[in-house]
Amino acid sequence: MTFISWNIDSINAALTSSSDRAKLSQEVLKKLGGYNADIIAIQETKLPAEGPSDNHLELLAGYFPGYKIEWLSSVPPAKKSYAGTMVLYKEGMTARREIVRLGAPDTMDDEGRLLVLDFDNFYFANVYTPNSGDGLKRLSDRQKWDQLYADYLSSLDGKKPVIACGDFNVAHKEIDLANPASNHFSAGFTDEEREGFTKLLARGFTDSFRYVHGDVKDIYSWWGQRIKTSKINNSGWRIDYFLVSDRIKEQIKKSEMIDSGPRQDHTPILLEIDLAC
């Protein structure tokens, strides 16, 4: 089976805008359509509470014909058109959507951050982990989210194997970002966030990219938009992951980044694994 995950940074902008950035996003969407993936996970949809419009669905079907769509948007009291997740999976596959509330702090459970589907032989979890924010003002809440998420994923793993993907907003090790020395107090690379990810893996999950590639360096999934040369200089972070239950790690065939060309921000990631749906 083939899985793709991508933080799109606004489905509406990617699908309907005519800006230069949107055109780059549309080229990425065309590329992803060529992979014929079984499941496609999208984060940071930024859709309204009522979800994708008919126009959005029609445009998505143009890139990905023959898919069912599940979505989860930010709803009150959380911010409007904020965060959000979506999963597209091939027609012919059957899945039951899990209703998930972690008991997370603040409005995190209302921000559309965790979309879980129950397939016959595995669970699929698409996550957009909360960012600790400027000045790490949300770090304490983020730590609670990490613990609750790990508990929940472990509970799923107790029933059947799990494939979890998304933007985890953490570079786990120093080799997962270009400039570790200057970022130890930056959101996404604090000791607390890294420890949270270590504890998640210790609950029985494998970072598929490291399983396949070992300690390879200089391969990232995100380059900041504020610095125009960040991607040209490969000054990036690896914060997007496919995790799998330890007991199916030997079935991993491929785990890699998908080249998004000159588009900065997140690049899509891909997992191939021998797994029946």
Rank of each mutant, 00 (worst) to 15 (best):
M1F: 08
T2M: 12
I8H: 02
D9L: 14
S10L: 06
N12V: 05
T16I: 01
S17N: 14
S18C: 00
S19C: 07
A22I: 09
K23D: 05
S25F: 13
S25Y: 08
Q26W: 01
V28M: 08
K31Q: 14
K31P: 01
G33K: 10
Y35G: 03
Y35S: 04
N36Q: 15
I39V: 15
I40Y: 02
A41D: 04
A41N: 14
I42V: 15
Q43R: 05
T45S: 14
E50I: 10
S53M: 09
H56C: 03
L57H: 00
L57F: 00
L60P: 05
A61Q: 13
A61N: 15
A61R: 15
G62W: 00
G62D: 13
G66I: 08
Y67Q: 01
E70T: 10
P76N: 09
S81F: 02
S81I: 02
T85E: 04
V87P: 01
Y89V: 08
G92D: 07
G92R: 11
T94G: 07
R97N: 06
I99Y: 04
V100N: 03
A104C: 07
P105W: 12
D109R: 11
D110V: 01
L117A: 06
L117H: 07
F122A: 14
A125V: 15
N126M: 10
V127S: 14
V127H: 07
T129K: 04
N131K: 12
S132L: 00
S132M: 00
G135N: 13
L136M: 06
L136N: 12
K137N: 13
R138Q: 13
S140V: 13
D141T: 04
R142M: 09
R142C: 11
Q143E: 15
K144Y: 04
Y149D: 02
A150M: 07
Y152P: 03
Y152E: 05
S154F: 10
G158E: 11
P161T: 12
V162T: 00
V162K: 02
I163V: 15
A164H: 04
F168R: 01
F168S: 02
F168C: 00
N169Q: 12
V170N: 03
E174P: 06
N179M: 09
P180C: 12
A181M: 11
N183P: 04
A187S: 15
E193H: 12
R194F: 03
K199S: 13
K199V: 02
A202R: 14
A202P: 00
G204N: 07
F205K: 02
D207N: 14
S208A: 15
F209G: 06
F209S: 05
R210W: 10
Y211T: 00
V216W: 02
K217S: 08
D218E: 15
D218W: 00
W223D: 03
W223Y: 08
R226A: 13
R226Y: 11
S230R: 05
K231G: 08
K231E: 08
N234A: 09
N234M: 05
G236R: 09
W237V: 02
R238D: 00
I239E: 00
F242Q: 03
L243H: 14
S245I: 11
D246M: 04
D246Q: 10
E250R: 08
Q251M: 11
K253G: 09
K253N: 14
K254G: 02
E256T: 14
I258F: 09
G261N: 07
P262W: 13
R263S: 13
Q264P: 06
H266C: 10
I269M: 07
A276M: 08
